[in-house]
Design a protein around this nucleic acid. Structure first.
Length: 442
RNA sequence: GUGGCUGUAGCUCAGUUGGUUAGAGCAUCGGAUUGUGGUUCCGAGGGUCGCCGGUUCAAGUCCGGUUAGCCACCCCA
């Protein structure tokens, strides 16, 4: 027997239903915040990803040369495609643009917990708005998504940081522009590596500064309130000009935190400069969502990336957005006992005698056309008992019994298979009766 | 790319110091059951014990390799 490729998953019906329910909640939650759906190609030019991240990223892509000699790759993330699409229409679109996508992505990595080679992501982005109103709504929408699954501030939280703060810090340390990526990378590793190992690694890039950077970065990463950030900024000893810019940034922090509080996100968001995100293209506020009661991979991550569209050759377009993966999210929901399920709808099993078959099949067609879910046994000549047994084992909620007694007066028996109770219903009223059945909680 | 653990029926697992034809529960299918289901009982199908090689009179069991899965590292878009 063939098996699925490493890191690729089969979805049998029981898993498929959960997955569809997940997508449905995603869709409803982000549409409630005014986002509209879009999609792009699963296959893109390899250069679209190299452009942003460099040649080494190729190792983690599914990529090949197509028959036309083009170097192509399965998309590992949505943002470059979004940037390309939005960039092409940027000048003609009314701002802000609020788009979301639910789609498959591919990365050639070693599979492990929370990580596969093909996963589905929800991407939610706001384009064309430079102000913190967009950052606030982006984070609020993320909270809406979590809450739509019944998760609370007991289950998850969002760590909010700001790359601009780190820019000020690097100004103060005197880190040159070409080294800043390494420093951000080091900050990202602070939670996982001890001082000695990290300083040693960092000193390969910034020399003797490494120790100072590490100790200062530790202090900034430990700040978790706005007053603390402001005090930290005053201690930097910036020039008057830079000081003014920093003050303006702190004012934006204040507006953002106020908006998040008013949008009901106050209990979910914590200031945490230790988050920087791995990607090069982030420019401002960045954030990641985590489970609260256990250590796990980030549930979602995002931030502001004002330069990406321009870098891809489009016009300057402000942007802020985030992504959430299906694997980690379903993991989290299972841990929290909040695994989503598709809505329960009545499902009917037709039970009939040989001489009632014709009438019954007529109703099968009519009820199915009316949108009811209707099935029946393929076995001819099976007794009513056999058919009912099949009905109860098939997972149907109700059996419709077509017997001579019922049909003689133009009725059928609608039997609730859970309770065993039956009720006679006029055949012409069947669709209406079944449509009114409410299975919630059953 | 590195390391640890694990592979026996569709699933969960037994399988003694190596010893005849590898078992159980659940699930599946059939029957008991000719107009009223879920229970119960009976029966059936389903395994080259992940794969290859070695040791041995004899390997599911011991050894080596390999492959797959899980977990961790690396990386994380």
């Amino acid at each position: 027997m063939f098996e699925s490729l490493p890191g690729f998953r089969d979805f049998y019906p029981e898993d498929f239903g959960v997955r569809q329910a997940l997508f449905q909640r995603w869709k409803e939650a982000v549409e409630s915040a005014g986002f509209v759906g879009y999609d792009g190609p699963v296959l893109e030019p390899l250069e679209l990803y190299i452009e942003k991240s460099g040649e080494e990223i190729v190792e983690q892509l599914f990529h090949f040369v197509d028959k036309g000699g083009r170097r192509v790759a399965l998309r590992p993330e949505m943002t470059p495609t979004l940037g390309r699409m939005a960039g092409a229409r940027a000048n003609g679109m009314r701002k802000p643009v609020k788009w979301y996508n639910i789609g498959d992505h591919f990365r050639f990595e070693r599979p492990q917990k929370g990580r596969t080679r093909c996963f589905t992501q929800l991407n939610v982005d706001i384009l064309g708005e430079p102000g913190v109103a967009a950052d606030a709504e982006s984070i609020h929408t993320l909270v809406l998504v979590f809450r739509s699954f019944g998760l609370t501030c007991e289950d998850f939280y969002i760590r909010l940081s700001d790359r601009e703060l780190w820019s000020f810090a690097m100004d103060a340390w005197g880190v040159s522009a070409d080294k800043r990526g390494y420093v951000l990378s080091a900050i990202d590793k602070m939670e996982r590596m001890d001082r000695e190992a990290l300083v040693s690694w960092l000193s390969e890039h910034v020399g003797e500064l490494a120790g100072l950077i590490y100790d200062d970065a530790r202090k900034l990463a430990a700040i978790h309130d706005l007053d603390g950030l402001i005090a930290w900024g005053r201690s930097l000893g910036l020039s008057a000009e830079r000081r003014e810019v920093l003050d303006a940034r702190m004012a934006e922090w204040s507006v953002l935190m106020g908006a998040l509080r008013d949008l009901g996100c106050g209990d979910y968001v914590v200031i945490d400069p230790g988050i920087v995100r791995g990607l090069a293209y982030y420019t401002g506020f960045v954030f990641e969502a985590f489970e609260k009661r256990r250590k796990s991979r980030a549930l979602a991550g995002g931030g502001r990336y004002d330069n990406l569209v321009g870098k891809l050759g489009g016009p300057d377009l402000h942007a802020v957005g985030w992504a959430m993966g299906d694997v980690t999210m379903l993991d989290c929901l299972e841990f929290c006992g909040k695994t989503p399920h598709e809505a329960v709808r009545p499902k009917l099993f037709m039970v009939f005698g040989e001489s009632e078959r014709g009438v019954c099949f007529g109703d099968v067609d009519a009820l199915r056309s009316a949108g009811c879910r209707v099935v029946y046994s393929y076995r001819s000549n099976a007794g009513y008992g056999k058919q009912l047994k099949e009905a109860s084992q098939s997972g149907c909620s109700h059996a419709l019994i077509y017997g001579p007694d019922e049909l003689a007066v133009g009725e059928v028996t609608v039997k609730d298979l859970a309770s065993g109770t039956g009720i006679r219903v006029k055949r012409e009223e069947l669709a209406a009766y079944i449509g009114a059945l409410d299975l919630k909680g059953s």
